[in-house]
Amino acid sequence: MRNNVDQKVMLELDDVSQYFQLSRHKILKAVDHVSFKIHEGETVGLVGESGCGKTTTGRSILKLYTPNTGNIYFKGKDVFSFNSEEEKRYRKEAQMIFQNPHASLNPRMTVREIVGTGMKIHDLVKPKEMDAKVEALLRQVGLNKDHMSRFPHEFSGGQKQRIGIARALSVDPDFIVCDEPISALDVSIQAQVLNMLKDLQDTRGLTYLFIAHDLSVVKYISDRIIVMYLGTIVEEATAEELYRNPQHPYTKVLLSSIPVADPKQARKKERLVVKGEVTSPINPPDSCRFAGRCPNAEKRCFEEMPSLCDVSPEHRVACFMIEQYFRP
């Protein structure tokens, strides 16, 4: 287990909110007052159902949106107060692997251009050495030099995702936001890409924010896991702790809903029942977002918003029902 105290913080989100004004009275609160830290060399998993704000969080970190409240610090500096030089360096140091490999590669560019453009902009290689560098990157992700002059449509989904990964790696980043990098891939290919991401982390000392809705995958790859529900963090813990000892009712529901590939266990497994579906993030109430579906919600849950509180050193939960047992 990693010791967080003496580890350097790579990225810090402090009270970040990201709202989208849909019309005069409709505000979609995609991310609502979210704070967490990512340490150097760590993989943090971000899970939740669709519409819970996990992708928006990842995109805000990379300044693809401007948050409505809060600050984002990268290596101790506020990313929104960068000067142009720092800005350019941030673009090099933080990269993203996108969810849909079919839509995130420019169809009019060859693989050489897709992978090479970043290096050219950041002046990382001499023009003469460009081909050799691109070839080395492609080899690293399991492609070869014959693929260099091809266009994206000539590749399968798994290969496209590898090109996306090569592009992210090309500028030698420290931090990568992996936004559901394997959910568009076939089962037998998913393991190939997952293993590759892990190997790259070992050899290059990368830090990942790994966004996914598949909890088994997140548990496999992450050191720490953050569970989001409708724009808010409901639980945060180390991967082992979260699975062994989930506290928030939503986390429990999520865990019990995963279909297990073990028929005997599947027949015995009792699923926790949860009412209804995820409610809309448009004009959400200022109370616990999960209260409407929660099996043990009380009056207070519908009136106030619980804040994250520590239940053990590396385990935080936002729930009134849990909080009362841990009050000093």
Partner: peptide
């Protein structure tokens, strides 16, 4: 496939 019992 990664399952919940798969070790890191």
């Amino acid at each position: 496939i990664a399952t919940l019992d798969t070790n890191k």
